[in-house]
Nucleic acid binder design. Structure first.
Lengths: 337, 337
DNA sequence: CTTGGCACTCGGGAACACGGAGTGCTAGAC
DNA sequence: GTCTAGCACTCCGTGTTCCCGAGTGCCAAG
């Protein structure tokens, strides 16, 4: 059905359309890609490709444009991820290395990715669930209030102000802190609930109300942020592009955490670090856009996802290369800290 | 020069133009605002207003459009800030009250303001310099590394990983923490440098290199974030509006912290909580946009600024009302926590 | 100072023609 | 059987023209 030349034609159409943003005709195609055949032959192949739904024409007697199905085939079989140039790699390295804390890492990553791809970059904050407790801190603010600070091995810091049900002496707080730390230090966050389950019983009865309050906030903190914060950058890159679904919809989606989450997609359990590409109508929302995403994190335990959002008509090989490279570097950085 | 009727005409032009987005003509004006005079009279007044540079016509034989100078006069003398409805106020209150930490307060504030004004909202993080130290925490990560966590009374948490010049025992770290806290607790951040100046001398000689390293990072942390992070929301609201300076420029400015900072402007020292309105060409960058901003913070000490950015053609009274109200509420919230 | 009248101007939309790029088809060449 | 060349056809986009209407500026009269 699809012989080699037809595939070559499809590839050529995708490449030309991506670079020119205009429907591509048989004549220009035949000469620009030295296919060794005449425009007429190309036309026949195009007719076949259109028959099978890989390309379409905006209107009679116009050039052809790839369909979502066409891009899909291109991504799966006709292209290969384009590695970054040495200069780009060095730029990434130095830029990310300058980060001072986790916030800064995420901020720099999203900026970098946006600049590199000239698209909208999206980065999910590293999720808590797979990381481990490095330190729990209780800071007395006054005699009825403490601040809970939770520090993880990924450098994340969570804080909550807790209103205590009764006055608690500072040294009791200090004692509780010591107990908490000895109990939780180095443990995976997902294990915390069971580890603290019997804690109230091991402490003096008069402290229990306060301890219960603190623990409930602690557990809440772990659960609440399960669906993680997502940031984006590079909205300015949308200005030029024209989206099937209006620009407004895209901007709205970017500010809606829930939608973004869906778009980034779940990490496929088997190969979390693989590149995910969702093209046009394959997306749950935002039909007119494509998403290139991947998981990142240190080696075996994936922390979260990052990716790029752009028009269906994007340069997939380059974008995929950039996403993959950035994911790797940021994983390195996080593993080192 | 400008009698009452001319001012009324200018006000009417601004109001009509803001609501219709079309140049407003003498006839429509005369009947819609029952000015008790004929279109011809209005035309004479318009000619005078144009002469003085308050309005202009896009081309001959079109209606009039306010100039920046016209908006300025309108804002200064012809309008009054429109208070929010009771329902809106309650909505603000409940929405902001749900915030769990400082990040969340800022995030909710910027979202709220964007939704309320249907413009782009911009919020600067509370600045460190005026706040006070609530707690300093040193967490040993391994024997050559500690994490410094600085907690302020505004609920802000700063964290840095510090590479020590030599191995330091955990109990030394604990001691240093105790010293730091006893020395800094409750002090204004701007006083920190002098307070820690003689600290190395008061500690055992063998600890000094480590202490010096830690202190230098601490001081750096204070300085570095002096110019504070700024976040925005509501970019989708730009989609409809047409800007003199292209949409792209606006989006780029929004992602450029430095530019945003300039746009929000310095707090005027005498009346920091006053509303600042910058119209069109009065802005340092982004000529085509207007900005309504104000300081916020608990009473006497202003923490930072927040505001709204939109097309010159915006509903100033309503926008100003929303900005002022939100600033007040967020100040309350911050003072309470 | 205000008003009505009048000629003038200009932008924007509708109607129209036309050139160009591209297609589909058919008949001939390898 | 597959490729090629030629040809008629179909639209799109652009440029042109024309006309209508909204709005103005000016002037003379109230």
């Amino acid at each position: 059905m699809l012989d080699d030349r037809k595939l070559a034609v499809l590839r050529a159409i995708v490449e030309d359309y991506v670079s020119t943003n205009e429907p591509v005709g048989s004549k220009a195609l035949a000469e620009r890609h030295n296919l060794k055949v005449s425009p007429a032959t190309v036309r026949n192949d195009m007719a076949a490709l259109e028959e099978d739904g890989y390309i379409t024409q905006p209107h009679t007697s116009a050039g052809r444009v790839p369909t979502d199905k066409g891009y899909r085939l291109f991504v799966d079989r006709l292209s290969q991820v384009k590695p970054l140039s040495g200069a780009e790699r060095r730029a990434i390295e130095t830029f990310l290395a300058g980060a001072v804390d986790l916030d800064d890492v995420v901020f720099r990553t999203v900026r970098l990715l946006a600049q590199l791809t000239r698209q909208v970059a999206v980065v999910q904050y590293p999720t808590l669930t797979r990381s481990t407790v490095r330190h729990v801190e209780l800071v007395p603010l006054n005699d009825r209030r403490v601040m809970l600070v939770l520090i993880t091995n990924t450098g994340r810091v969570e804080q909550r102000v807790i209103e205590l049900p009764e006055v608690v002496e500072d040294d009791r707080i200090a004692h509780l802190r010591a107990v908490l730390n000895s109990c939780l230090d180095g443990c995976g966050l997902s294990n915390v609930p069971e580890l603290v389950a019997d804690l109230p019983e091991r402490l003096p009865a008069e402290d229990r109300p306060a301890v219960a309050t603190i623990l409930s906030v602690l557990l809440e903190t772990l659960v609440e942020r399960h669906d993680e914060k997502i940031v984006f950058a590079g909205a300015a890159n949308l200005a030029g592009a024209d989206f099937a679904t209006g620009l407004r919809d895209v901007l709205e989606a970017l500010e809606e955490q829930v939608v973004l989450m869906r778009l980034l997609g779940e990490t496929s359990t088997d190969t979390p670090s693989a590149l995910t590409v969702r093209i046009g109508s394959e997306n749950p929302y935002l039909r007119g856009t494509s998403i290139v995403a991947t998981g990142y994190g240190s080696g075996d335990n994936q922390l979260a996802r990052l990716g790029v959002l752009g028009p269906t008509r994007m340069d997939y090989p380059v974008t995929m290369g950039a996403v993959r490279a950035v994911a790797r570097y940021v994983s390195q950085i996080l593993a080192a800290s």
